Amino acid sequence: MTDHSLRGTEPSIVRTALENRDPLPGTTGFAGAVDDRLVRDVLGRVPLFVDEAPDVAPANRAWAFEPTELEEPTLFPAGAAAAVDGPLPEPESQWSLPDPEPAEPDAALEDLERAIETATDAVRRDDRDIAVAFSGGVDSALVAELLDAPLYVVGFPDSHDVEAARTAADAMGRELTVVDLEPADLERAVPEVARATGRTNAMDVQIALPLYLVGERVAADGFDALAVGQGADELFGGYEKVVRLDHRVEAETVRGAVREQIRSLPEQLPRDVLTIEATGLEPVAPFLHDTVVEAALRLPDELLADEDERKRGFRRVAAQYLPDEVAGRDKKAVQYGSLVARELDRLARQAGYKRRIDDHVTKYVAALLGDDETRRD
Rank of each mutant, 00 (worst) to 15 (best):
A318K: 00
E373F: 15
N20P: 00
K311S: 01
P89T: 09
H289D: 14
R263E: 13
G155D: 06
A351M: 09
A62E: 15
L245E: 07
E145Y: 07
M172T: 10
L48A: 06
A196P: 01
T68H: 12
D345W: 14
E282D: 13
A232N: 05
Y336D: 12
L176Q: 06
P157G: 12
R259D: 05
A202M: 11
A83S: 15
D372P: 01
L151R: 09
V84M: 10
D85S: 12
T120G: 03
V46S: 01
L304Q: 02
P102I: 05
E277P: 01
T275Y: 08
R37P: 02
D41A: 05
A122Q: 13
M1H: 15
P150C: 07
L142Q: 03
R21V: 14
G86E: 07
D324Y: 04
G337L: 09
R166S: 11
R329I: 04
G256Q: 10
R248Y: 15
G231F: 04
A367Q: 09
V365L: 05
A82Q: 06
R263W: 06
L245K: 08
A219N: 13
T291I: 00
G256W: 08
D371A: 14
R7E: 11
V284L: 00
D306H: 07
Q350N: 15
V334W: 07
R271W: 04
A17Y: 05
V42Q: 02
G328L: 08
Q206I: 14
Q261V: 00
F49G: 10
M172W: 04
T9V: 14
A219K: 15
L274E: 08
H247S: 11
L97M: 13
R40G: 01
E343I: 12
P157Y: 09
E260N: 08
T253M: 09
Y353R: 12
E19I: 04
T177Y: 05
R263G: 04
T2I: 00
R61K: 10
T16N: 15
L186C: 02
A115G: 10
D359H: 14
A318V: 03
G32N: 03
R125A: 14
